[in-house]
Design a binder for these strands. Structure first.
Lengths: 196, 196
DNA sequence: CGACAGATTGGCAGTGACTGACAGGCTGGC
DNA sequence: GCCAGCCTGTCAGTCACTGCCAATCTGTCG
């Protein structure tokens, strides 16, 4: 169950990477909306049906890998020492994600620009982020000394939502600065204005 | 240009209200996803084509009126006296929106439950909220004594995004408490945890 | 009252994302 | 070499949404 036959898995990864590559290329040429899934399928040399089996939705072509990063975020936050403040723990989680990305900065900027430039894409993006937030609730509650109930605590949710909001704001500004600004610095500014 | 012949406008409003009514009824019965636009059109006695002319998208059936409330929010925040703090100004804006709703609490709860229970709907919802945030940027920048540039200031964006995040968190918790909790109180708790 | 201009409506056909069902092919174990 | 199981492609269908065109309706003016 644990170990796949690695050959299939590897080729699958290769196919996925190839598809994403071609898709981003097409998006850059014609724009996201103007590109059809049929074009992506043809360009990557797979059938339309298989394309939808790899990526459930068109949006997932762009922000599909966010899925996996969520687990890393939660694990990192959970692994922070208890004496680390909630804010620092969350920050540590995000910095880990940033450095863990296996993309070049150019690629990250390209994808981010795509996301922040397309309202529906951005919507889908924040939908995924919402799942991260939900997963973080018990972790943060414990860290704040709150017993976890069925319904999240308002204080924990507020803190989590705020950090995500500031990360999002910093990301958007980073994109709008063409990647020339320091995203980390922008985040610090945003959060300082909030907590100051 | 300003004054429509009011008769048309009134009947239009009536049609819109009728459509929304029937739509929410169907959504409650069968669920949002399972209800087709054709059903809504038939139930409201209009053609499918006209339905799409009234509501550009299916999501707008649920969160279409949010549009208008945005202007009210911005206007209210802008109208706050300069000595009022940024946080209080934003809070004033949201309380105004809450009281300005022409729906019964039950209806608000019904709609909110629908939105927070359907990820794509919620996405669309936050997409609209994003536009509010953008509109607020210059207002908040001025209030914080920041000169407005082409690209928003990180501090202003952080504050705005945080308030929206806390309002969202409070709304979601209010829904998950079945409307039995005090949404305002939840917001205060969330924001206090952030700023404290 | 009757005709006219403008806007609204409905029907129709089409696009594009997405899905289920079915058939054939490739992989891995015997 | 053969069988079981997953993967893939093909096909047809659903549903949200849009452009086009004709019919209809509203208010106005002669």
């Amino acid at each position: 169950m644990e170990k796949r036959s690695t050959l299939w898995d590897r080729s699958r990864q290769a196919v996925v990477a190839e598809i994403v590559d071609k898709a981003l290329e097409l998006f850059a040429e014609q724009g996201y909306e103007a590109t059809t899934m049929a074009q992506v399928a043809a360009s990557a040399g797979v059938s339309q049906r298989s394309l939808f089996r790899y990526f459930g939705t068109k949006e997932d072509l762009v922000c599909g890998e966010q899925e996996a990063l969520g687990d890393l975020l939660v694990a990192t936050v959970e692994a922070q020492a208890p004496e680390v403040s909630t804010w620092d723990a969350l920050r540590a989680g995000f910095t880990t994600i940033l450095t863990a990305s296996d993309h070049t900065p150019q690629r990250v900027l390209e994808i981010s620009t795509l996301i922040f430039g397309n309202p529906p894409l951005r919507s889908r993006y924040s939908e995924k982020r919402l799942r991260w937030q939900r997963a973080l609730v018990p972790v943060i509650e414990k860290r704040m000394g709150i017993e976890s109930g069925e319904i999240p605590d308002a204080r924990a949710m507020g803190v989590i939502a705020t950090v995500f909001a500031c990360v999002d704001a910093a990301s958007e500004l980073w994109v709008r600065h063409g990647g020339k600004a320091d995203a980390f610095e922008l985040y610090e500014q945003a959060l300082a204005a909030v907590r100051g």
